[in-house]
Design a binder for these strands. Structure first.
Lengths: 158, 158
DNA sequence: CTGTATCCGAGCCGATACTG
DNA sequence: CAGTATCGGCTCGGATACAG
């Protein structure tokens, strides 16, 4: 018998579990940044720009719990803590790239569909309004680009 | 030529936008079910099993707004409404498969990491407790399997 | 610098009741 | 059958203050 259909039960939970982790507001961005190499707490904080230290701590703690990042403390003064992707964390970048490619290449189409839909039903309030993620400051971030760019099926020459 | 580094600003927003849509509790499951072909409202509702009609409506409305599914009304009595993935919606399955493959093949490792972490810090409450998605009933759902199975890197034989 | 603790608003999501 | 409306709990996530 083919390998398919084997454990649908557990399988559909699997993807939900993953989305419960990376589906939140900040996780993918952190992973993307970290994919370029280890970073310190405030380095992440500054680069992202719109995250509170509370959420950064929580996000990192969650990733650490799942074995996706390591937390290394240097007992110096002032203290220094490095966060780095584990091997497992690195592998996550692959499917993330796939998603990233889809997102970038289809965003215009989605935006158009939304406008068309909203125009057709002006009275109905939008299902779920945005969750705006503040843009990173353009300055210090070829990092994020390397992280997800060069994905398959993503973009042609531009 | 590498097209990289071109529009980092817009790009990191792109992936966040996508996650804002598919990162919620039900969307991927609906897309997975729909990937096998059109389905009616209550058919989806029954198959998923744990979703309220409110959330199913909202989820479908959101997908429709983004141009990922179409809603077709048959003005019969009783009324009948079919939901179906658009071409754009179909393309989403590709990156979803990628994620699905990663999820299934790494879930044991993640679970282990969590246990280890929780064992090491018994007092600290978990960052974000679960978001349990009720399992689909095993009965009528080879559908979901076809949707995401045969993904690359996912599973070898067996 | 790297966190933790607390307060608080906003939204998600389920339960229930009602309509065409 | 396929929704809409309304209520209420709960969680997410920002702001602020404090600690090692």
């Amino acid at each position: 018998m083919e390998p398919s259909h084997s454990d649908v039960h557990g399988d559909c939970r699997a993807i939900s579990d993953v989305l419960a982790r990376i589906g939140d507001k900040w996780t993918v961005m952190v992973v993307g940044l970290l994919s370029d190499g280890p970073m310190r707490f405030n380095e992440l904080r500054r680069t992202i720009g719109g995250i509170s230290q509370r959420m950064l701590t929580l996000t990192l703690r969650g990733l650490e719990r799942d074995g996706l990042v390591t937390r290394t403390v240097f007992p110096t003064i002032p203290p220094r803590v490095d966060y780095e992707l584990t091997d497992l964390g690195q592998t996550l970048i692959v499917p993330l790239k796939s998603l990233f490619a889809w997102a970038t290449s289809n965003r215009p189409m989605i935006a158009a569909a939304q406008q068309a839909f909203d125009a057709a039903t002006p009275n109905t309030p939008v299902p779920h309004p945005p969750r705006q993620v503040p843009n990173l400051q353009a300055a210090r971030l070829p990092k994020m680009a390397q992280a997800f760019d060069d994905a398959p099926g993503g973009r042609n020459g531009r």
